[in-house]
Every structure is written in structure tokens, then in C-alpha cells.
């Protein structure tokens, strides 16, 4: 009886987990990023033990913890850069007990890559002069450069902290962070 019940539960759990593909699909997308130093998304959910210490140590409350609606990714940390970007205080990487967030320095962080949408950007459209992203960038004149006052991202330096997205006054945001490194083809 116990075994039967357990098997039933097991089968039910499997069905529930497999039926909607949403549960097993990563929540990471444009402007929704992992904290600094995160290992690739392929391993992230399996290595993270959901202790939430990164969120607890985050002084800006940038790091949010996902809940049951994200299926198997429940309990993992994400940063919604449109709400609160990462200020690169690098506290979270120091407290991660599993190495899911690796100990990296500020310049080595690769949470994503900023992308300027030239059809939305005021300066690129020639409607005005706005340097919000340029001013917000923590690596000024390195990660975002001005090309005749128009912002240009330097992919080698950009860490993807999202400060530029947060500062962008246009809706929808003219500069967004793409999590290009999270889905880098693993070996």
C-alpha cells in the first residue's frame, strides 16, 4: 500500500513536472539576470542549494528569490535590472557556499551584455541628447563610449550590471541587458 501510494505520488509528480514545459525552462531572459559570477545556466539550477544567502547579503535588495511559479527554478536568485540593477558590491559572490556564484572581481563579472536599441534611443534617433546610460555606467568611458554623443557599448568591458537600463528614461528601455553569457555553449 505504501509503495503503491508512493509510486502513484512519484508518477503524479513526474506528470506534473513534465506536463508544462514552462516549469523546466529557465527564467533568464532579457533584463532578468543571474547575480554576478554565476556559472552557466545549464548547471546553475542543479548546483545552487537555494540557501538564499546571496539575497540576504545583497544590500540593495537587487537579488530576488524565485518562487514556486518558476517550477524547478524556485529558490534560485535573479536580478530584475529594470527594477533594481546590480551595483556590483560583490557581497553575494563571497557568501555563496556552493560555488554557484564564483568569486570574481568587479571587472570580471559577466552577467550579460548591454545592447542599445537604436530605434528607441533618443540620441540615436536624433531627437535629443541623452547620456543617462553613459552617466550611470560604473565603467564610464570604458564600457559605454560616446560616438558623436551617441552611446556605444564595448562588449569586452561591459559587465551587464544593468545600471544603464535602470537609468534609461525611455519606455520601452532603449538599452537592455541580454544574458548572452548565461547560455554560452557549454563544452
Amino acid at each position: 500500500m505504501d509503495r503503491r501510494l508512493f509510486l502513484k505520488l512519484l508518477a503524479g509528480g513526474l506528470l506534473v513536472s513534465c506536463a508544462p514545459g514552462e516549469l523546466a525552462s529557465s527564467p533568464i531572459k532579457t533584463n532578468v539576470l543571474r547575480p554576478p559570477g554565476a556559472i552557466p545556466e545549464d548547471f546553475f539550477a542543479s548546483r545552487c542549494i537555494r540557501c538564499g544567502r546571496c539575497a540576504e547579503s545583497c544590500s540593495y535588495r537587487s537579488i530576488k528569490i524565485l518562487d514556486l511559479r518558476h517550477g524547478f527554478y524556485a529558490g534560485t536568485p535573479v536580478i530584475y535590472v529594470e527594477r533594481i540593477p546590480c551595483y556590483l558590491c560583490m557581497r553575494c559572490v563571497k557568501v555563496c557556499p556552493t560555488g554557484t556564484l564564483q568569486k570574481v572581481s568587479q571587472k570580471e563579472v559577466r552577467m550579460g551584455l548591454a545592447r542599445v536599441n537604436r530605434r528607441l534611443c533618443v540620441t540615436w534617433k536624433g531627437e535629443g541628447i541623452c547620456r543617462s546610460c553613459y552617466n550611470a555606467c560604473p565603467f564610464r568611458e570604458q564600457a559605454i563610449k560616446l560616438d558623436r554623443l551617441r552611446p556605444v557599448v564595448v562588449p569586452e568591458v561591459c559587465v551587464g550590471c544593468g545600471l544603464c537600463t535602470y537609468a534609461c528614461p525611455v519606455t520601452p528601455k532603449a538599452i537592455v541587458i541580454e544574458p548572452v553569457y548565461a547560455f554560452k555553449a557549454s563544452k
Binding site: 542549494i49 537555494r50 540557501c51 538564499g52 544567502r53 540576504e56 547579503s57 557581497r91 557568501v95 557556499p97 556552493t98
Partner: peptide
């Protein structure tokens, strides 16, 4: 921040 976390990972 001397004590952090809970019984999944306590620092």
C-alpha cells in the same frame, strides 16, 4: 553580517 543564512546554509 556576521551570522547569515539559515539551516540550509548557515554562515
Amino acid at each position: 553580517t556576521f551570522v547569515q543564512g539559515w539551516y540550509q546554509s548557515l554562515g
